[in-house]
Structures are given as structure tokens and as C-alpha cells.
Design a protein around this nucleic acid. Structure first.
Lengths: 153, 153
DNA sequence: TATCGTCCCATTGACGCCCATATATTCCCA
DNA sequence: TGGGAATATATGGGCGTCAATGGGACGATA
């Protein structure tokens, strides 16, 4: 199964349209999908994207209680509420709803970041910052691990 | 099977009419339904909505009379009692009965919230509050889970 | 006759769809 | 191997259609 790999920066025009990178479109079209399901990420200022099939699969996994109970509400329901099915136009673009543009601070450009089974859409500058921080943290953890190993062994 | 996803805020006019979002109508029309079954939610100040087929499926699974002592039965019969089949008008709107408007504190606007197999209709402000609380709770649970994993593994 | 509910029509504004252009990439042929 | 053509991609813009919404007419009922 093909995955979402790589980073691609595309423009966002006045109508809020942005081209989905061709490699990502190929992944979706391999599943006979003519659009992409998007929702605000819970963990950062970006938009998460995947095939609508993935969302439908989430629906399937939730208990189908005819009588709604109190435990019905979970992260999944938050995602259903905020997700949108965005169809491609003739040129392979999607239109980003204004909520998404606001959530991810998108201005002029959007960076598609492959995450394997999903991808994310970032403000390019914010992405760079976040990646730098992630790198710092990873290096710090690595140092800590090395130090701990020296002590114990 | 298509599901109800996304949130759409539409106006409620003086006659109590509100447009059902086109994506939701599409889900229902895929099942050859020309209306939507609604009933007050048990879990919050909102209206639950789904296809009439879902209500009928519920009916199939239940006895004619509530069985004393079984809460689910009486709850289900409560739902049947308060449920309404609301047909679309020519423009894809439904008329909200005054009980529903009262129950969900609807004033001027209604927010359709996709929940997968069903959807809900909320007062937009109340929805925002409820979702914020839900998010807090979900994040707290998530933190607890991460902490537990660290300890055990 | 007055009121309520349902149906139908009108408007407007957004969105989907189509076409056009530019750039990059691949492929073919000389 | 180099040039050129053909294709694919990214992007801009315009137009038609449909969705959302408002208002009025008709019929039923009390």
C-alpha cells in the first residue's frame, strides 16, 4: 500500500484553493477516492489529512449503540465534528474552509507533510520551527540516554 | 456507507425552518430518504438526528412493551414517543417543532454536528462550550494513559 | 374568518466546474 | 547525446449552477 511521503509546499490562492501534491493524489486515487478528508490536528497548529475511507473505518470501529449512552463521546466524535470531505477540482486542488486556514495560520502557502498513513498541512514557517524544536528535543533525549548508560554501565 | 461528518451552522427563520446541510442530505438521499428522524438527545441540550431507517431498526430490536426493570427499554420507548419524522421542503429544509427548539435552546441559528451514523443539532454557543469540555476531558484521559504506559513499560 | 401549516417561487451569494497559462519533466527521435 | 515535442503539474481566472434563505399563496382546521 502506498503511503504519504515527503514535503511539498504549494500556494493558496484568494479562493482558499491549494493543489494537493500529485504523489499524495496518487495515493488517494489508488483507493478510488476523489477527495481528501481533513480535520484540525489535536496536537498542533496544523490540519490532518487522510482518505475518507480512514474516517469511515473509524465510524465502523465505534460501538453502534442504538441507545446513546454517556460514554459515547470520545476523541473520535471530536474528529467527526470537525472533519470535512474536500473533493478535488479538475486540477487536483481542494478548497480549504476558513476554519482550517485560521487553525493552521495559513497565509499564502501550505506545506503538505507526509506522515505515512496520513499527512499534515502546515504553515511553512511554523513547520520549520516545530521541526527544529522536535530535533532539539530528540537530541536532548539522546544525550540523556547516553549519560544514563555511562552511569549505569 | 457514507457518514455524517463535519459541522455546519445554518439559520433558523421565523417559521422554525432550517436548511439541512447538503452533505447530510446526500447521506440520507443515498438511502432514498426524503426526510430526517429527530428526537431530543438524552445526553445534552441538543437534538439527535438520523435516518428514519435507524429508528425502525431500533423498533425491530425491542419488545412491544417496555420490560419493567430494563432501563434501555424504557429509554427506547421514550425516544419513540418524542421522535418526529421531519420531511424536507423543496429547498431541503425541515421545520423544527417548538419542543425541539426549546430543548436545545435554539435561537436564530442551529449547528449540525456530524457524529458518524447520526448527527446532532446544537445551539452554536452551547456546542462550543460542550466541545471545549469534551476536549479537556479527552486530553486528561490521554495524559493519564501516557503516564500509565510509562510506569508499566 | 382567522390561524396554522405546507407548498411553491424568487433572490443572492457561494461554490463547483471548466478553460487557460506557465513551468517542469519525460520521452522520443534525429 | 542533444533538441524538441508531448505530457503532467501547478496556478490563475471566469462562469454557471446549486445551496441557503426569505417571502408569499394556497388549503385545512378550528
Amino acid at each position: 500500500m502506498k503511503s504519504f511521503i515527503g514535503t511539498f509546499v504549494n500556494k493558496i490562492d484568494a479562493k482558499g484553493r491549494i493543489s494537493v501534491p500529485a504523489p499524495f493524489r496518487a495515493v488517494l486515487q489508488a483507493k478510488n477516492l476523489s477527495g481528501v478528508a481533513c480535520y484540525p490536528a489535536l496536537t498542533g497548529p496544523c490540519i490532518e489529512g487522510c482518505g475518507l475511507d480512514r474516517i469511515e473505518a473509524m465510524v465502523e470501529t465505534l460501538p453502534d449503540q442504538p441507545i446513546p449512552g454517556i460514554d459515547e463521546d470520545s476523541i473520535a466524535h471530536l474528529i467527526f465534528a470537525s472533519a470535512r470531505d474536500l473533493p478535488f477540482d479538475g486540477g487536483g486542488r481542494i478548497v480549504l474552509p476558513s476554519e482550517f486556514i485560521k487553525k493552521a495560520n495559513l497565509t499564502g502557502q501550505g506545506a503538505f507533510v507526509g506522515k505515512g498513513r496520513t499527512f499534515q498541512i502546515w504553515n511553512p514557517e511554523a513547520l520549520e520551527q516545530a521541526q527544529a524544536e522536535m530535533f532539539e528535543r530528540a537530541m536532548a533525549e539522546r544525550q540523556a540516554m547516553i549519560a544514563a548508560r555511562k552511569e549505569s554501565g
